[in-house]
Amino acid sequence: MELTLEDVRHIATLARIGLTTQEMETMRGQLGDILAHVSQLNELDTEAIPPTAQVLALQDVLAADEPRPSYSVDAMLANAPEREGNYFRTKAVLGYET
């Protein structure tokens, strides 16, 4: 399966991975090989087969609606690369279309 460099660039943008052009070129070949391999599934007629998302027969699992202790703000912020007060600090996100 042939992917173009533009296809790879598009997927990388969706995945938020800033690949270099060299990495994209390598990825283009490898993704192509993998997608070609998995396309063998097209040999199977699955028209009448329902999909399986997970194997347990579980449907909704409800938890008791009772308060219980939670984690402190400090514990949750302890791993933050950058913190300001009780917030995660990041760079600004401006000028992008959503």
Binding site: G18, A80, P81, F88, T90, A92, V93
Partner: peptide, 19 residues
Amino acid sequence: GVKYGYRSADGADLIETYL
């Protein structure tokens, strides 16, 4: 790179930081 773990110092804004 916001909540935990490694954050790259590169990137002028949030999206570039993600990338």
